[in-house]
Structures are given as structure tokens and as C-alpha cells.
């Protein structure tokens, strides 16, 4: 099963490396990892997406906790949380497709970030599911390039 794990780590050179290296050393699956500063500049938040049965996820959580640079490890999967991912994508553009593309951007509540004669770059924000769907839908128009941020997630407030 897929799990989203939120990890607060010391905002220090090497912290990301320690986490990533632990995953590869122990053979854990690492689907995505994203990291950024929090409100406290000394602490970063990492969002990790991984897969495994309960026993494996248990080990993942414990091994994360064991790293000295990790301050707090939370499995968000079974708690109320919000998850979002950002997609940037450049599509081929032509007179015939232009109209449809613009309509679809609206459907996905996306934005145009750049437009040229023969290409258009858009952004879509949403759950990983929504991002997957939008990629599928846009594919027939010709994707020239795409980049996904990986998931970031957070507890829902009280």
C-alpha cells in the first residue's frame, strides 16, 4: 500500500542524503521525495511517498526515526491530510488543437505559464491522481516535456 510520510529534519547539509541513502541501503521503495524549509529556517519538511506492507512501513518509520537528523516522523496516510503536487508541462500547439487545449486547462484549473508559436507551457496543481489524469488527457496533443514536483503533504488543521 502507498504511504505518505512527513518528516521534519534538521535543515542541514546532508540531511536529504541521509534519508535517501537509508532508503536505498535498506531496499525500501522510494516513489517520491520532496523537501523545503518550514516556518522555522532550521527545520525542513520532507514528504516521502513509499510503498510496502505494514511490517515494511513500520520499519521505514522506525529507521527514519533512528536517523539523528530527523526530528519528527509522521505517517499521514491514515490521518486527515492534504496532498498536492505541481505539474509543469510543455505541449505542442497548433491552430487546430489550441482551442481544445485551452478548454482542458480550464477543466483542470490549470494556468498558462508561457506560450510560443508552436508550444504552450502550463501548470496544474492537485492530488497525484489529478496530475496523473491530466497527463493522460493531454498526452494525445503531444507532450514535449514535463516535470512533477513530487508530493507535498500536510495535516489538516483542527
Amino acid at each position: 500500500m502507498k504511504h505518505i510520510i512527513s518528516v521534519l529534519v534538521e535543515n542541514r547539509f546532508g540531511s536529504l542524503n541521509r534519508v535517501a541513502a537509508m532508503f536505498s541501503a535498506r531496499g525500501f521503495n522510494l516513489e517520491s521525495i520532496s523537501i523545503g524549509e518550514t516556518e522555522d529556517p532550521e527545520i525542513s519538511r520532507m514528504t516521502i511517498v513509499t510503498r510496502g506492507d505494514d511490517q515494511i512501513i513500520n520499519q521505514v518509520l522506525k529507521q527514519l526515526n533512528r536517523l539523528i537528523d530527523t526530528i519528527k516522523v509522521t505517517d499521514l496516510t491514515r490521518q486527515p491530510h492534504v496532498e498536492r503536487e505541481l505539474l509543469l508541462m510543455t505541449l505542442k500547439l497548433s491552430k487546430t488543437t489550441q482551442h481544445e487545449i485551452f478548454e482542458l486547462i480550464n477543466v483542470f484549473k490549470g494556468k498558462v505559464v508561457d506560450i510560443k508559436q508552436k508550444s504552450i507551457t502550463i501548470e496544474v496543481i492537485g492530488s497525484p491522481d489529478k496530475i496523473n489524469t491530466s497527463i493522460d488527457i493531454f498526452k494525445p496533443y503531444g507532450i514535449k516535456e514535463l516535470a512533477r514536483s513530487g508530493v507535498v503533504a500536510i495535516h489538516r488543521g483542527e
Partner: peptide, 14 residues
């Protein structure tokens, strides 16, 4: 050496 010993130390520092 910090990179090399990361997986075989409890922790390491530069």
C-alpha cells in the same frame, strides 16, 4: 569520508 561512512556510522559530522 562523511559520504563514504554515512551508512556505517551511527552519525557523522564535517
Amino acid at each position: 569520508i562523511v559520504g563514504i561512512t554515512r551508512p556505517i556510522t551511527k552519525h557523522n559530522f564535517l
